[in-house]
Nucleic acid binder design. Structure first.
Length: 267
DNA sequence: ATGGTCGTGTGACGA
C-alpha cells in the first residue's frame, strides 16, 4: 500500500494550470498541495484538476495574493482553515484523509516571506513572519487523538547550512537568518515533527527547492534555497520510502520559482 | 556592489 503527497508553490494556479496538469499526469501523486494560488475560491480551476482524478479539492483562496489548496484522489474530511496572526491572510488549510488504517491530518502552509530587511523594528513583514512561526509552535504532530499528521508547504525558511548555496553569505539574508532558522527548528521540536526531506537526503548534501527569477541563468548559478518542506509525525516517518525534488520543473515553460517536492510512503 | 524578475490587475505591492 503506497501513498504519495506533493507540495508546490505554484505562483498563480490560473497562469500555470498547464504545468500543474503536466505534473499531475507525470508524477501522479495521490495528493497535491498548492501554495500561492493567487485567486479566490470560485476562480480555482477545479474542473480540469478533477478530470485527472483529483475529485476532492479544498481551497482557501483570496484575491490577488497568497492562497492554498489541497487536491486529492482520496476523500478529504474535516477541512479547517487557521488564520495565523489574525490578519485575514489565506496561508493555511488542513484536512483529514485515511491511509493504511490511519487517520492522517494534512496541513498545507504558506509562511510569510518576510520582506528584505531582517529587523522587525524597521520591517513589519519580518515581524509578521516571526510571529507566524511563533504561533506554529502550538501545532503538534501528535495533537489530535488517534490521528497522525503531515505538514507541507512553502515555509520560506531554509533551516540548515546546506539548504542554501552559501551559508556564510546568507546569514543576513531573510530566509536564512539565525532567528528564522532557530525558530523553525523550535517549531519542529515543539511539535515533535520529523523533517522527511532530510531523513532521506543527508544534511551534508546541498538540497534546494527554489531558484530566484532574478538570476540570469538559474541553472548555471544554482544559487538555490530549500524553502519547501515535508514533515510528519514520527509514526509515519518509518513508512517513508523516497523524496523526489523535481528540479526539471524550474526549466519548464513559464515556470514557478519553486519546484514540486513529493514524499512517497509504503507499507 | 547592488540590481536583478515575476504575478495581479492597472497602480502599487508582495514575493
Amino acid at each position: 500500500m503506497t501513498l504519495s503527497i506533493s507540495t508546490w508553490n505554484i505562483n498563480s494556479v490560473r497562469l500555470r494550470l498547464p504545468i500543474v496538469l503536466d505534473f499531475l499526469r507525470q508524477a501522479n501523486p495521490d495528493i497535491l498541495c498548492l501554495q500561492e494560488i493567487k485567486c479566490q475560491n470560485d476562480q480555482f480551476p477545479s474542473e480540469a484538476i478533477t478530470e485527472l482524478g483529483y475529485s476532492n479539492i479544498v481551497i482557501h483562496g483570496q484575491k490577488g495574493y497568497h492562497g492554498v489548496a489541497i487536491c486529492s484522489k482520496l476523500p478529504l474530511t474535516e477541512d479547517h482553515r487557521q488564520d495565523y496572526c489574525g490578519v485575514g491572510d489565506s496561508r493555511h488549510i488542513s484536512a483529514v484523509f485515511a491511509w493504511n488504517g490511519r487517520r492522517i491530518r494534512l496541513h498545507n502552509f504558506y509562511v510569510p516571506a518576510g520582506g528584505d530587511e531582517p529587523n522587525r523594528e524597521i520591517n513589519p513583514k519580518f515581524g509578521h513572519k516571526l510571529d507566524f512561526i511563533e504561533e506554529m509552535k502550538l501545532l503538534s504532530a501528535d495533537g489530535e487523538p488517534e490521528t497522525s499528521a503531515i505538514l507541507v508547504g512553502d515555509l520560506n525558511i531554509a533551516p540548515l547550512e546546506h539548504d542554501v548555496w552559501s551559508h556564510k553569505q546568507m546569514l543576513k539574508i531573510v530566509s536564512h537568518t539565525p532567528i528564522e532558522t532557530e525558530g523553525l527548528t523550535a517549531v519542529m521540536q515543539a511539535g515533535n515533527w520529523v523533517d522527511l526531506m532530510r531523513q532521506q537526503v543527508p544534511a551534508t548534501e546541498k538540497l534546494y527547492t527554489w531558484w530566484s527569477y532574478r538570476a540570469k541563468d538559474w541553472a548555471a548559478a544554482d544559487r538555490g534555497r530549500r524553502l519547501d518542506h515535508i514533515w510528519s509525525s514520527s509514526d509515519l516517518a518509518s513508512s517513508l520510502v523516497g523524496i523526489d525534488v523535481l528540479k526539471d520543473a524550474r526549466g519548464w515553460n513559464q515556470p514557478s520559482d519553486h519546484v514540486p517536492v513529493t514524499a512517497r510512503f509504503a507499507v
